[in-house]
Design a protein around this nucleic acid. Structure first.
Length: 214
DNA sequence: AATTAGATGTTCT
DNA sequence: GAACATCTAATTA
């Protein structure tokens, strides 16, 4: 049985208004999955903030409401999982209060527990970067599938996030978000964050800077 | 090492 | 019908 010493992040953490700050604070936290009765856990090493109606890169931009985006308008602390490119299930954490459609995309994690199950789900033999450094690969490693998990409560017993110390500015890299070139000037917003000095990151850009250098 | 093509299905115009 | 918060294998150099 897994140890349960660390605390689950509460409603207060997720429902704050500043999605960029919540994104930064999610770095270093522990993402736990008990999907399919299999316990896996991983350290969050890369995230991106999506700022609701005012963010052209966000699915809810201009206040778009649809079956897909509806969950983002609900309360913070639930999962927004969607199918990307017809193949990949991307996992987001909904933040802010009801009515505000903010979310944080989890883009990379470092395995902590249940590595053997992650390897099996990914069809890999070795634990290395490509096991879970990417929004689609981490979802596969942790068993996230959109049908099951859209709207999952993140303090339940299927998926949750456990508290861990905050990273310091010198331990954190800031960059523009990946794959959102269609978003015009919003594509330039420095809303991607990853843990410095770890290989568990999806990709690096020439413009990346330590947060402490800005 | 860097670039390209192909996989696939839902959402939005 | 186009676009899409991606990944992998194959190809080029």
């Amino acid at each position: 049985m897994p140890e349960m010493s660390a605390k689950k992040l509460s409603e207060n953490f997720y429902e704050r208004a500043d999605v960029v700050q919540v994104a930064r604070e999610l770095l270093g936290k522990t993402l736990v999955s008990a999907v399919d009765g299999i316990y896996t856990a991983a350290r969050i090493t890369e995230v991106e903030a999506y700022a609701g109606r005012n963010d052209k890169a966000c699915h809810a931009n201009d206040g778009l409401r649809s079956a897909r985006t509806e969950i983002m308008y609900g309360r913070g602390g639930v999962a927004y999982v969607y199918l990307c490119y017809g193949l990949h299930h991307l996992f987001n954490v909904v933040t802010n209060v009801k009515g505000q459609a903010d979310a944080v995309l989890i883009r990379a994690v470092k395995p902590i527990a249940g590595e053997e199950y992650m390897l099996k789900r990914r069809g890999k033999a070795k634990i290395e970067k490509n096991l879970s450094s990417g929004p689609a690969t981490l979802s596969q490693a942790l068993g996230f599938k959109t049908i099951l998990l859209y709207g999952s409560f993140l303090q339940g017993d299927l998926i949750w996030i456990e508290d861990a110390p905050l990273l310091k500015p010198e331990e954190m890299v800031v960059s523009t978000r990946i794959g959102v070139d269609y978003a015009g000037e919003d594509a330039l917003k420095p809303w991607r964050f990853y843990e410095a000095h770890t290989p568990w990151v999806s990709k690096k850009l020439k413009t990346d800077r330590l947060l402490s250098e800005i």
